[in-house]
């Protein structure tokens, strides 16, 4: 697993207070991990802070799963 994926999952565990085993790559924040819309806003802010990237609102709306977050951040980092 990439460093980015590790770090993303760690942030999800901390912010949503869920068990690590539940945070699979395919997991949806809202459907699988019990987040609400405000939780996801906060989560995206945490990603921005941790990875030093800016995630504009229209992109943030499309980040609904762990995989979405990993892919977006890796794309930004390689850009």
């Amino acid at each position: 697993m990439s460093d980015t994926a590790d770090k993303v999952k760690k942030i999800v565990v901390e912010h949503l207070g869920v068990e690590e085993s539940k945070v699979t790559t395919e997991a949806s924040f809202i459907d699988d991990l019990g987040a609400d819309s405000l939780d996801t806003v906060e989560l995206v802010m945490a990603f921005e802070e941790a990875f030093g990237v800016e995630i504009p609102d229209d992109a943030a709306e499309k980040i609904t799963t762990v995989k979405d977050a990993i892919d977006y951040i890796e794309k930004q980092k390689s850009a």
């Binding site: 405000l38 906060e42 802010m45 802070e49």
Partner: peptide, 10 residues
């Protein structure tokens, strides 16, 4: 300013 939490107001 962008770091203000969505939970700030509630």
């Amino acid at each position: 300013t962008r770091r203000i939490s969505p939970f700030f107001i509630p």
